[in-house]
Write a protein that binds this DNA or RNA. Structure first.
Lengths: 244, 244
DNA sequence: TGCGCAAATCTGTGATCACAGTCACTATGA
DNA sequence: TCATAGTGACTGTGATCACAGATTTGCGCA
């Protein structure tokens, strides 16, 4: 049962946009776990809006693969199998690695300052005797996106956001419940390396650092062995968009 | 004024899905041109459905960036500026190049046969005294996606489809109205090289061939000089998904 | 106490209505 | 003749209702 924020303020041009942003934020923050079912009516009631804006928001999130409609007509957070999670990880390594490389080439001083601040924040929080896991995950996200934003490619940012939306529930599920991994500091090394590479305008180094960070985090999650086997026998074409 | 197919059959689990697939196909086929305005009510009437499924389809396409809602509350096909088109091209080179590389590594004989058939079809059509431009564009798309499908990554396929949806209206606008470019056969060389590389399991060669194909096609379109200047002063964050 | 069937509840989907904006056209004024 | 205000026909958005199907609940029976 996903926990609900007591009252959420909706922003955005339209109500549908507001709902979408809110759901996106919750997905990224790990409020929902893989397999959780969402009810359009329940969300609508919780947010004090009608079902229409919720439906629009959900349809967009389904388009992004952040949610899925089961054949039983239930909207839920997708459950990724090991194979699918591996595929997602491989994709993230390539695409976020690309963003990091571009960031190293195109960053300006303001970008660097934001990245350095996030990196310092992450280090600070991790060094505390009892790190706030939810906060740590949030800062980690902030750091990654600070780097990607410096790549100055809004379309690339959108793609990466889509990937994070797919991975978010799993990452949050496993990261925010394990103190051991956060405290071990394996991720910190990569973050520091990424910052240094972006500062030095070292595209290859930035790519490797980000790729390493993603790879080891996902390797850890897979090693937990909590991911189910693949659901799709082979694979299903994205949105069966191409007919002929 | 976009031309309408006399009567289109809607497939898919739900009406909304059917409408989405239909609109997607039209976008990819160049039925709509950049700047064309779509009316939800008109589309609904043309398709014989209510406004609800159309709204859902459009909201998904807006999420993918294939359509946009202007501040004046009009849904239209986005008009890409030169800078945005360059960004899109750079992204396509990286991501579709990645797909081609994976395809070279992972393809099996069945994949290769499909790719070879599409390549032969493209060559055949181009060699005709009066090539059917619309058909040529369709075969070109078929060839590209045959390659990408061999990469065996549905998520990557979805990303690429999203990129094509953004680029489709422009590509079709300029390619299907210019016999010169098709007849010149510059694209054919890259296609043949891509096929050969995939056959030889040469990942680097496949990436270079696809990248070359995209680069020269987009260079040609930019050289036409019909693209307007950038619309966004700097750049707008994809879907303003990240708040903090 | 355990099993099975039925009814009630809840699901997403589609259609329809109401509303507040925007745009284009037109009639009226100077 | 030209500018301008008005007016009507659109636009997308949101809410509400109806419907068919799946899920769950709960009651009755063995």
């Amino acid at each position: 049962m996903p926990l609900q924020a007591p009252r959420a303020t909706l922003e955005g041009g339209s109500l549908g946009d507001g709902v979408r942003q809110l759901l996106t934020r919750r997905l990224l923050a790990g409020v929902y776990s893989p397999g959780d079912k969402l009810s359009l009516r329940r969300v609508a009631a919780d947010l004090g809006v009608s079902m229409t804006p919720v439906r629009e928001a959900v349809s967009r999130l389904v388009a992004d693969g952040a949610l899925e409609v089961a054949p039983s007509r239930a909207v839920r957070v997708p459950i990724l199998g090991v194979g699918e999670f591996r595929e997602l990880t491989a994709l993230r390594i390539e695409i976020e690695g690309l963003a990091a490389a571009w960031a190293a080439e195109r960053r300006d001083d303001a970008d660097l300052a934001v990245i350095a601040e996030a990196e310092a924040g992450f280090r600070l929080e991790r060094a505390r005797p009892a790190p706030d896991l939810v906060l740590t995950v949030a800062i980690n996200q902030k750091l990654h996106f600070a780097i990607y934003r410096a790549a100055r490619s809004p379309m690339l940012m959108e793609i990466i956001t889509g990937l994070w939306l797919k991975a978010g529930p799993i990452l949050n599920l496993d990261m925010s419940t394990n103190v051991a991994r956060v405290s071990s500091g394996t991720g910190e090394r990569y973050h520091t390396a990424a910052l240094a590479a972006v500062r030095a305008r070292d595209a290859v180094g930035a790519r490797d650092a980000v790729a390493g960070d993603i790879a080891q985090a996902c390797k850890y999650i897979i090693s937990l062995g909590r991911l189910p086997a693949n659901r799709s026998p082979q694979y299903i074409d994205g949105g069966l968009l191409i007919s002929t």
